[in-house]
C-alpha cells in the first residue's frame, strides 16, 4: 500500500506535519522527517531516552512507513536501533502499541503525537502483553534492579551513533 502514490490530501497533510514539526519541534525527538525528498511516504525519526529512567541518554533510530491512505490508516513504525523493552521486539523492532492498530488509530493523530506515544511507552512498559518476553519476565517477577541494569546496558551498548545527514 505504501508503495503506491499518495493522494493529494495525504501529501498535503504530510507537508503540513513537516511544517508544524519544524515550527514546534517535539521534545521527545532529535529528528523527524522524510528519509529523502523523493518519497514522502518513507520517514525516519530519532527518539530520545527519558531522563530519570534506565532509558536515559539513549538514542534510537526509527523507520516510519506511511500508507498511501494516511491518515485514515496508521503508519507502520519500527525501531531500527535495538532496544530492550517489554513491548518492543528486540530482533525486529516491532512495536506493540494499540494506537498503531487500525481499530484504535484516529486520523487526528500525527506522526509527532504518535512518536510521543511511543516515547511514553518507554516510561510506561506493559509487561502483560510482551513482545520481548525475557525482559518482560524480569518486570513481572518484580526484579526491577535486574530489569534496569539490562535496559541500561542495551541503551548504552546500542545507542544510535548518528549519521551526518541527521540531527542538529
Amino acid at each position: 500500500m505504501s508503495s503506491s502514490a499518495p493522494s493529494s490530501s495525504t501529501t498535503q497533510r504530510l507537508l503540513r506535519e513537516l511544517k508544524d514539526y519544524t515550527k514546534s519541534p517535539n521534545e521527545a525527538l532529535l529528528h523527524l522527517g522524510p528519509v529523502d525528498e523523493e518519497n514522502l511516504l518513507n520517514w525516519e525519526a530519532v527518539l530520545k531516552g527519558v531522563a530519570g529512567t534506565p532509558y536515559e541518554g539513549g538514542l534510537w533510530h526509527l523507520r516510519i512507513a506511511i500508507p498511501s491512505n494516511y491518515p485514515l490508516a496508521p503508519p507502520t513504525i519500527h525501531f531500527a536501533t535495538r532496544i530492550s523493552h517489554p513491548n518492543i521486539s528486540f530482533t525486529t523492532g516491532e512495536i506493540c502499541l494499540t494506537l498503531l492498530t487500525t481499530e484504535h488509530w484516529s486520523p487526528v493523530y500525527t506522526l509527532s503525537t504518535t512518536l510521543t506515544a511511543i516515547h511514553q511507552l518507554l516510561t510506561d512498559p506493559q509487561p502483560d502483553s510482551p513482545l520481548n518476553v525475557d525482559v518482560a519476565a524480569l518486570l513481572r517477577d518484580g526484579d526491577v534492579a535486574a530489569w534496569e541494569s539490562v535496559v541500561r546496558y542495551w541503551t548504552g551498548e546500542e545507542r544510535w551513533q548518528g549519521a551526518t545527514s541527521i540531527g542538529r
Binding site: 490530501s9 498535503q12 497533510r13 503540513r16 486520523p107 487526528v108
Partner: peptide
C-alpha cells in the same frame, strides 16, 4: 464555519 481548518487533511 468561517476560519475552520480540518485537522485530518489540514484543508
Amino acid at each position: 464555519i468561517p476560519g475552520f481548518m480540518c485537522e485530518i487533511c489540514c484543508e
